[in-house]
Amino acid sequence: MMTIRRYLAAALCVATVTLFPAITVAQRRSGPDPIGAAHRLAPTLTRPASAERAPDADGFIQRWLVLEPIRIQIRSNAQLNDSFVQKTVKAEYFNNQYAVIPRDRDKVTVNGIELMWHAIDTSTYHVNLYHFARALNKPAFNILFWAVTIVDCPEEIRDVRLAVGSNAASIWWVDGREVIGIYGDRHMVIDDGVSRRLSLKRGQNVVRCAVLNSPGVSDICARFLDAEHKPVKGFIVNLEDAAR
C-alpha cells in the first residue's frame, strides 16, 4: 500500500505541475503576495473574494487559514501512531500556536524558516493541502499543516459534534479544547473522526487542526453534525472579522 501511495503521490506531482503551470508561474512572479494577483491558487483553492462564507449544502466548512507546511522528520505514514502524532503536533513550533487567530499573510518563523498564513476558499467539500503546498512551491511530503477557521454563530447551537476527515493523521481543537485525534495512515473520508457533544457559542468559535502526512495526498474536511446527524449550517465563516 505504501508503494501505491508513493506512486500516486508521484503521479499527482506530475499532474499538478503539468496541468497548472500557469498558476505556479503566476505565483512565482507575484512577489510577496504569491496568490494575490490571480485569485486561483490551485484547481480547487482560491483566495476569499467575499467577507463571509456559509458552509456548503452538506455543512462543510470551505474557508480556512492555512499555514505553509512545516517539515517534520518522518520516514513513512506507518509512523503516524497515536504517540508519534501527539508528540509531533504538540512540540512548540510558533508562539501561541493553540490560540493564535492569524490574519491572511501573517508570518511565523519555524525552525528559522519564515512561513505564511493564507486565507483560502475551497470549491469542494475538502481542502486539498497537497495542492496548497505544491502551488506555493512548498514541500508537500513529510510535513505538518496547521489550519484555523472561525465559525460565527448567530445563536448558541447546542448538542453538536465536530466531524472531520483527514489525510493523514490529525488533531482538532474547538475553542482551544482538543476534541478529536485520528491516527495512523489515514485516508480522508467524511465524518471519520467525530467529537463528543459540544456547544457552539453565539459569536466566534475557533476550529483548529494540525495534520501530519508523509508521502501522498494530504487533505482535510470538517463540518458540524447535530443530534440527528444532520449537517449544521446555521453559521458563517468570516476570517476578516476574526483577523480584526
Binding site: 459534534r161 466531524a163 485520528i182 473520508v189 467524511i190 465524518d191 471519520d192 473522526g193 467525530v194 467529537s195 463528543r196 457533544r197 453534525l225 446527524h229
Partner: peptide, 18 residues
C-alpha cells in the same frame, strides 16, 4: 456509531444501522 471512528450513546433507531 457516529461517523467512522467514534461511538456514543443515542436513541435506538430501528430503521438504521448506527
Amino acid at each position: 456509531a457516529v461517523g467512522s471512528s467514534f461511538a456514543t450513546l443515542a436513541r435506538f433507531d430501528p430503521g438504521g444501522d448506527r
